[in-house]
Design a protein around this nucleic acid. Structure first.
Ligand SMILES: [Mn+2]
Ligand SMILES: [Mn+2]
Ligand SMILES: [Mn+2]
Ligand SMILES: [Mn+2]
Lengths: 217, 217
DNA sequence: ATAATTTTTTAGCTTTGTCTAAAAAGCGTC
DNA sequence: GACGCTTTTTAGACAAAGCTAAAAAATTAT
């Protein structure tokens, strides 16, 4: 498998993760910042290798085999992210780009040894689950901060948007995984929230609250 | 820089490491298991980028810039080998192939953090020197086991041939870096040696003695 | 039901890195 | 200095992965 094939599989996996529907050529093209015609070419190749179900004009989905391979790439990506943060002390907003490269290193033994070295983590630095060596993913219950009501408290367990910009915003406001957040007030006009973080009051927009996963405490 | 360009630079670096002469198209082709015509194509491209000095029919050598880049690739390769052996507990005969992939990961910050994480090692698991972040290489004095005389003792500090086969042979005979070896007798007919390793006597061929680096004790 | 619009595919071209076969250059021998 | 062998380069082809522009299919609107 080439890097490119792996990247397509991973993209299709992410796009079908929650909807579980067929995914469109254009959706793939947009997410990969490429052209629809290039996507069509690749889908034919992946179909040829039995990694996707593909019928002209009818969207695409992963085969069992394709899904497993995609999960293995996600596994590698997230384990390397843990390594970079836990062992090399990288900030959580810098690891994704490097993991995009490391996820293509081919060696099952390597990734399983890395997994052990890291203590078999179940989540990456952004709170996303790490598939095990068989592709099994343990999904933990989590809801968006925006779904909490007044006076409810949650512990931050993940981010929905894991862009550099958002992660840096959270750093600036001293919000990290494990931080406890209490909802103080909700503004009806723009749905902005006043929250309590570490004894400090902070006002955050609806967009922020919609991208932070919490677990009720 | 592409993987392919990096591999060519690295090969030219290794071929010119000791001789310091121009290297031939055929020598590169042979070491990379490719064809001379492919090498010629790549040399033109590298010359265009000012990474090699190249004149038709007259061999090739690295420019200062090309040499520095080559050293950075070697640095990455050897640091990753240390990581694999020291942290992930890989046997020394399995790390080269994986390092061939890891050496192409692009991130200066990553490699410098890895260097620190490993305690800034100066040598890789095969006794080869690791260039520092500026490309500086500290060469330590070492001689071949075959150069020792009767009753002389040396500590094994490196291997000249680092093929799987040779490394496994050494494992089988309990010879590792740091092992002390004493020359007991030399056979005039085939230059085979009787040596003492860990209180045990072992007979080794001239070929073995010619591929083991030692430091006199 | 037809027309307009959007989506997807096809056709044809480009770049990178490889190959084979043939031509050109360099070198050792007489 | 010519001949023959070896090395190197060139010419031309191919596969992978991308692109643009045009055609075809699907979808939406009238
Ligand atoms: Mn990531
Ligand atoms: Mn992540
Ligand atoms: Mn190596
Ligand atoms: Mn090595």
């Amino acid at each position: 498998m080439t890097f490119s094939e792996e990247n397509y599989l991973k993209t299709i996996f992410h796009l079908t993760a929650f909807s579980d529907q067929e995914v469109s050529t254009n959706a793939i093209a947009e997410m990969m910042a490429t052209k629809a015609s290039s996507v069509t070419d690749m889908l034919k190749k992946l179909a040829e290798k039995d990694l996707v179900h593909y019928k002209k004009y009818q969207g695409v989905s992963l085969t069992a085999n394709g899904r497993l391979l995609a999960k293995m790439i996600v596994r590698k990506h997230r384990l390397w992210e843990v390594f970079l943060v836990e062992k090399l002390d990288f900030p959580w907003d810098e690891v994704h780009d490097i993991a995009e490269q490391l996820e293509h290193i081919k060696s099952e033994k390597l990734i399983n040894k890395l997994d052990n070295f890291l203590g078999n983590p179940t989540e990456d630095p952004h709170g996303d689950p790490i598939p095990d060596a068989y592709g099994k993913i343990i999904k933990t219950e989590k809801l968006l901060l925006s779904e909490l009501g007044f006076n409810q408290s949650g512990i931050c367990v993940g981010v929905k948007d894991s862009s550099k910009e958002f992660l840096k915003y959270l750093d600036k406001n001293q919000i990290a995984l494990g931080t406890q957040i209490e909802i103080l007030t909700k503004e009806d006009f723009d749905f902005s929230l006043k929250i309590k973080v570490d004894e400090k009051e902070v006002t955050i927009s609806n967009k922020i609250a919609n991208n932070l996963f919490v677990k009720l405490v």
